[in-house]
Design a binder for these strands. Structure first.
Length: 417
RNA sequence: GGAGGGGUGCCGGAGUGGUUAAUCGGAGCAGUCUGUAAAAUUGCCGCCCGGAAGGGCUACGCAGGUUCGAAUCCUGCCCCCUCCA
């Protein structure tokens, strides 16, 4: 097979590619035609390194890209080092803080590693916006902006909502879709991938490509993954996300904590379980013949093994069973070396330790005020025994537990001095 | 440039001189329950000192001022929104 060609594809491929985990394709007929043409397609997806973590929400589209790669197509990842400075206004109701060059640079570095947990590096091309925007002049900007009208921009729902609600929209934000669109021109994209909230931006790309004499790209929209809270979209800023570089135990645990209502959505968008299998799951949930927890465990295991491997997944599952389901103490507890004598006071002739100070030192809590509250709420235990006051006996080797999941093992550093 | 409206804790949003660390809702944390789900329910939800009792500090855009006392009144400044130009 020629390197310039994508694989000849079957109906099965088309169905998998264009149906599973896909929200909308514009223009679908053209997309199918492109795939059948055998042309090696240039698939673009842009990322704003506005925060340093890629999470499962991003994984939906990345998995799609991966599928296309397996059919021989070329992925072009755009590092949005310029647009990140603006902050994507899509679906956001307020202006985002602008980031510094340095910040963006640092985030972008860590992004790379994360991309290639899912995307095949050998069939991907990484392009930085600064490649073309670095030399952009004001006259380029004027030329670019002259092609679009305010009315066009206000056609976008989140802009018009904000406008109507009397919330500020900065001019740089209006620039965002244009910059993203120009990326498509710069890399001559055949298809651009994004979440459904990206629809407007991707469509602007089509228009701009047309005016530049290129074939307008196909717009490939994947669903927005719901976050672990079960209501809002997964996003870093909402804190309801599972990062792809988190540790296996964390990923597993967070996956287990999603509401039941999300199980099928996650299976569909994040795993390769076949449609048939999904149908079985759906039925089982509906008929209540299977405890949703069992299905969730399968889901959690699958996600971990995709991001790590089978072994890690099994370990995470064991860990979960022990730690969470049986409320045991984990095998490995972070140790803290502290000087017990410095924290010790005499009370009733016995040596005792100020627990709230200890909790702050071990970083188990943020402040002494918080520590006092948690103690009062029976959330703190030492070697399995709840403590009732701020004073208790702690020895070298004592295990402190705060809430369900926070642990620390105390190691006395006195005799090391 | 002119007129009007507004800036309150993570978010939304009350409060217009006095137990106000600031009603209420959401988010979050913790307890009970449990499948680390949901629902329910209880409590917490600025920081510091103190074993505790208790005490102190900081906070309602920023900076001053009036007052025994201000998120609340006054002055200046900054920012946002709407309408007019």
């Amino acid at each position: 097979m020629s390197v310039n060609k994508g694989k000849v594809i079957t109906d099965f491929d088309v169905n998998l590619l264009l149906k599973r985990g896909v929200a909308e394709i514009l223009i679908e007929d053209e997309m199918v035609e492109l795939l059948r043409s055998g042309k090696k397609l240039r698939l673009k997806e842009g990322f704003d390194p506005s925060s340093p973590d890629i999470h499962l929400g991003h994984m939906v589209a990345l998995k799609k890209l991966r599928q296309f790669q397996e059919l021989g197509h070329q992925v072009i990842l755009i590092v949005g080092d310029w647009t990140a400075q603006i902050g994507d206004p899509s679906g956001i109701s307020v202006t985002r803080p602008m980031l510094s060059q340095e910040q963006v640079q640092a985030n972008a570095e860590t992004y790379m590693k994360q991309f290639f947990k899912i995307v095949d590096k050998s069939r991907a091309e990484v392009r930085w916006q600064s490649e073309w925007y670095g030399n952009f002049t004001l006259s380029n900007v004027i030329q670019l902006t002259s092609k679009f009208t305010v009315a066009q921009m206000l056609a976008r729902e989140d802009f018009s909502n904000r406008y109507n609600a009397g919330q500020p929209i900065t001019i740089t934000e209006l620039l965002y879709p244009l910059l993203q669109a120009y990326d498509s021109v710069a890399v001559r994209a055949d298809v651009e991938f994004g979440g459904t909230d990206q629809k407007f931006n991707l469509l602007v790309g089509r228009e701009l490509q047309s005016t530049a004499g290129q074939n307008p790209q196909q717009v490939f929209l994947v669903p927005i993954l719901t976050g672990t809270d079960g209501t809002m979209k997964m996003s870093k800023s909402l804190g309801n996300y599972i990062g792809v570089t988190e540790l296996p135990n964390e990923i597993y645990g967070k996956a287990m904590s999603i509401p039941d209502s999300l199980i099928l959505e996650y299976f569909e968008l994040l795993t390769d379980y076949s449609e048939k299998e999904l149908e079985v799951f759906r039925q089982e949930i509906k008929d209540e013949t299977t405890n949703p927890m069992i299905l969730k465990k399968r889901l959690a295991r699958d996600i971990v093994s995709q991001l790590y491997d089978q072994t890690a997944a099994n370990e995470a599952e064991e860990n979960f069973a022990k730690l969470v389901q049986n409320r045991e103490i984990p095998d490995e507890i972070p140790e803290y070396h502290i000087s017990i004598s410095e924290l010790t006071t005499k009370k009733d002739g016995k040596d005792s330790i100020n627990i709230s100070k200890l909790l702050v030192l071990t970083k188990l809590v943020k402040s002494r005020s918080e520590a006092s509250r948690l103690i009062a709420q029976d959330a703190v235990s030492i070697n399995g025994e709840n403590i009732s006051g701020n004073i208790a006996l702690v020895k070298s080797g004592s295990i402190i537990r705060v809430g369900k999941r926070r642990f620390a093992k105390i190691v006395n550093s006195d005799n090391l001095k």
